[in-house]
Simulated scan of single mutants.
Amino acid sequence: MLPGYSIEQWYNYKFSPETAPLEVQLYFTGARIPMMKAEQIKHEVALRNGVTVKDIMGRTRVRKITKARKEAMYEVFKETDYSLPTIGKVFGGRDHTTVISNILRHCRDNNLEIPRGANWKGRSQ
């Protein structure tokens, strides 16, 4: 059993090679290739929210999935120095304005500061 995962998470989560958390992929493949920080964040957020990375990358507008997608974009923006267009590409070719909108909404919904001191003119929380 990998540390950090409960029996319930293992039982209820449907793993596939593409959607398994990074630790699970590394455990079963023995791979030691470092994953991009953004990919690692997407895996962690997906596991926390009970969705798959494929869901986060997809176009669905189901509330549970969009919440996870916003959180993942916020975390990638906060934890990396990727530009907004790069983050959009990481999330399936989304526009940089979509990334801004998702970050602002996540900050507003969770009473968080906008990371990196970003100041997007004309945008309000």
Score class of each variant (00 low, 15 high):
75 E>F: 11
32 R>Q: 10
22 L>G: 03
35 M>A: 11
22 L>I: 15
40 Q>H: 12
29 T>W: 07
48 R>P: 03
46 A>H: 00
26 L>M: 11
66 T>C: 08
34 P>L: 02
14 K>T: 15
19 T>G: 12
41 I>F: 07
76 V>F: 01
24 V>K: 00
15 F>E: 11
80 T>M: 01
49 N>R: 13
14 K>C: 09
11 Y>S: 13
56 I>F: 12
70 K>W: 08
80 T>N: 06
7 I>Q: 09
35 M>Q: 14
51 V>S: 02
68 A>T: 09
10 W>P: 04
7 I>E: 10
36 M>E: 09
72 A>K: 06
10 W>K: 05
53 V>I: 09
45 V>D: 01
34 P>D: 15
8 E>L: 09
64 K>Q: 14
70 K>R: 13
77 F>V: 08
37 K>T: 10
38 A>K: 05
49 N>C: 11
76 V>L: 02
71 E>A: 12
38 A>E: 12
23 E>H: 10
10 W>Q: 04
76 V>G: 09
51 V>T: 02
18 E>G: 02
40 Q>C: 00
26 L>T: 06
9 Q>G: 02
55 D>Q: 15
7 I>Y: 14
73 M>E: 06
67 K>F: 08
63 R>P: 05
6 S>H: 04
33 I>V: 11
51 V>Y: 00
36 M>K: 13
80 T>L: 00
80 T>F: 01
59 R>K: 14
81 D>Y: 04
64 K>E: 14
72 A>D: 01
67 K>A: 10
67 K>Y: 05
77 F>L: 06
83 S>L: 14
50 G>P: 04
9 Q>H: 09
66 T>M: 07
35 M>R: 14
9 Q>L: 13
28 F>I: 06
84 L>Q: 04
13 Y>F: 08
20 A>M: 12
44 E>N: 15
27 Y>Q: 14
27 Y>C: 10
35 M>I: 13
43 H>E: 00
53 V>A: 06
77 F>T: 06
6 S>A: 13
14 K>P: 04
81 D>W: 05
16 S>C: 11
36 M>T: 10
36 M>A: 11
55 D>R: 09
39 E>I: 09
81 D>Q: 12
35 M>E: 12
46 A>E: 01
10 W>H: 12
69 R>G: 04
45 V>L: 11
17 P>Q: 14
23 E>V: 08
15 F>Q: 06
59 R>P: 01
57 M>E: 13
35 M>S: 15
21 P>I: 07
26 L>I: 12
42 K>M: 10
78 K>G: 08
70 K>N: 12
58 G>C: 01
32 R>A: 14
7 I>P: 03
54 K>M: 09
77 F>Q: 03
61 R>C: 06
11 Y>A: 15
49 N>F: 07
47 L>N: 04
6 S>N: 07
72 A>E: 02
7 I>C: 11
43 H>R: 09
54 K>N: 14
6 S>D: 02
26 L>E: 15
57 M>Y: 02
60 T>G: 11
30 G>S: 02
78 K>Q: 12
60 T>W: 00
34 P>F: 04
34 P>H: 05
10 W>R: 08
62 V>G: 06
15 F>H: 15
60 T>L: 10
25 Q>N: 13
71 E>S: 09
70 K>L: 08
29 T>S: 15
44 E>G: 05
31 A>D: 13
43 H>C: 07
19 T>Q: 02
56 I>M: 07
13 Y>W: 05
24 V>A: 03
